[in-house]
């Protein structure tokens, strides 16, 4: 069951999308989301969808994986769209009992749904094509100006890197411990909510114990390699913008400007 979590899973590859500078991808993804939220126009959204489909095609990500990443937010999407459909005042289309469906409600629901779905698709695409390490690397670069206001950017991104690095390890560990306790007859699937919560103790205790042990070992290992924070630290892989990055930036910028224009013109 834990293996089904796909958010933040990196699929190695050698496509155009994989080769892009993580900083560029991160910024483009961020701008894309902003543009999604400031526009509310059918043609603009069609263009946004096209943008994502193109990304999926170019990065050779299987659409199935993308749909899988949408599964956990399906409830949220349904909930917001139902609320929007029934609670927004406007031109009434259908009325039954105390409920009424308005045209404005339907439209808002549609925009909200597309927005959330495209937002998740774009971030998933970013996650699938960028390794967590280069992602935090990009973040460190982009947040570097915050160093001026005494924000510990390097420490923050190191924490992120470690946290991300340990997600698969912890998932694997959890799977192992779960299997081991199942072999001792543990039952996680039946009983009421209290019984189920109690059934988690045999998993959580060993998981905590091993997390602390791992943290301790990692800290020692880092100290052995004379880690002492970001000051004066050089990098193995220096991020550098290439031709691909400029092509991608220009293409994205044109698409986003088009989306905003379409929204302003209001086709």
């Amino acid at each position: 069951m834990l293996k089904d979590i796909t958010l933040g899973q990196f699929f190695p590859g050698n496509t155009f999308m994989h080769k892009l500078d993580p900083r560029v991808k991160l910024v483009v993804c961020f701008v894309f989301i902003i543009v999604l939220f400031i526009t509310e126009n059918l043609a603009a959204y069609a263009l946004a969808a096209l943008f994502i489909i193109l990304g999926v095609k170019v990065s050779k990500t299987s659409p199935k994986m993308l749909l899988k990443s949408l599964k956990p937010i399906m409830f949220l999407v349904l909930f917001t769209s139902i609320l929007n459909i029934f609670y927004i005042e406007g031109e009434v289309l259908v009325r039954f009992w105390i409920l009424k469906v308005t045209k404005e409600g339907l439209m808002t629901a549609f925009y909200m749904t597309s927005r959330i779905i495209m937002l998740v698709c774009a971030t998933s695409l970013l996650m699938y094509t960028t390794s967590p390490i280069s992602l935090t690397d990009a973040l460190e670069h982009l947040l570097a100006p915050l160093n001026k206001v005494k924000f510990p950017v390097h420490e923050f991104s190191m924490m992120m890197t470690i946290a991300m690095r340990f997600i698969p390890t912890l998932i694997e560990e959890t799977d192992k411990i779960m299997a081991a306790q199942k072999a001792r007859g543990a039952d996680f699937e039946s009983g009421n909510i209290f019984a189920r919560a109690k059934a988690l103790i045999p998993i959580l205790v060993p998981l905590f114990v091993s997390s602390f042990r791992r943290a301790d070992e990692l800290a020692t290992a880092m100290e052995c390699r004379l880690y002492q924070g970001g000051e004066g630290r050089t990098r193995l892989n220096v991020l550098k913008l290439t031709k691909y990055d400029y092509v991608f930036m220009v293409f994205s910028a044109i698409s986003f400007v088009l989306m905003i224009l379409l929204n302003v013109v209001g086709i």
């Binding site: 192992k176 411990i177 081991a180 001792r184 007859g185 039952d187 103790i201 045999p202 060993p206 114990v209």
Partner: peptide
């Protein structure tokens, strides 16, 4: 479930499952 009890499986590094 019956199989879990009929066939007891000791995992690798089983000490990590003590709780």
């Amino acid at each position: 479930r019956a199989a879990r009890f009929a066939c007891g499986l000791v995992f690798q590094y089983p000490e990590y499952q003590l709780f």
